[in-house]
Simulated scan of single mutants.
Amino acid sequence: MTAWHTDGATAPGARPDVSRSEPPVRTDPVWYAAYGSNMSLARLRTYLRGGKPAGGTLTLPGCRDNADPIRSTPLLLRGVLYFATESLTWTGGRAFYDPDCPGEMAVHAHLLTTAQFSDIVAQEMYRVPGADMDLSDAIAQGTMTLGPGRYETLVCAGTHAGYPVLTFTAPWRCRDVRGNPPAAAYLRYLAAGLRAAHGWSARATAGYLATRPGADRRWTPEAVHALLGDDEVVRRTYEETAPAHAPTGDSSSESR
Rank of each mutant, 00 (worst) to 15 (best):
L190T: 05
T85L: 13
E222L: 10
T114N: 06
G51N: 01
S201Q: 03
G130D: 07
D100I: 04
S19N: 15
H245P: 10
W200D: 08
H110F: 10
G56C: 09
C174N: 12
T85G: 08
V107T: 15
L187G: 05
A67Q: 11
W200V: 05
F117Y: 15
P74V: 00
P247W: 01
A3V: 08
V155E: 01
P99A: 03
S201Y: 08
A226K: 08
D230S: 12
R20E: 12
W219E: 02
D231Q: 09
G55L: 11
L88G: 15
P181F: 09
L112C: 01
T167I: 05
D230A: 12
V128D: 15
D98R: 00
S37E: 13
Y151I: 00
R78S: 13
I120M: 09
M125P: 01
P99K: 05
G51Y: 12
S87L: 03
A106W: 07
C101K: 05
A54Y: 10
A140S: 15
P99Q: 02
F83K: 12
T145S: 14
T46S: 08
G147P: 07
A191I: 02
T153A: 02
P213W: 10
Q141F: 14
Y35W: 02
R64F: 01
I139W: 11
S40K: 03
D100V: 03
A67Y: 02
A34I: 14
V80W: 15
W172H: 05
G79T: 06
F96C: 10
G229Q: 06
V234T: 13
T211A: 15
P247H: 07
P23H: 08
S40T: 08
G79Y: 07
S118G: 07
G8P: 12
P182K: 01
S40M: 04
E104T: 14
G249F: 08
V233H: 04
D28S: 12
N180V: 10
G93S: 02
S201A: 01
R195Y: 00
D216Q: 04
A184N: 04
R49C: 09
G207T: 14
V224G: 11
L48S: 02
A9M: 09
H160Q: 09
T241R: 12
P23Y: 01
A197E: 06
P148T: 07
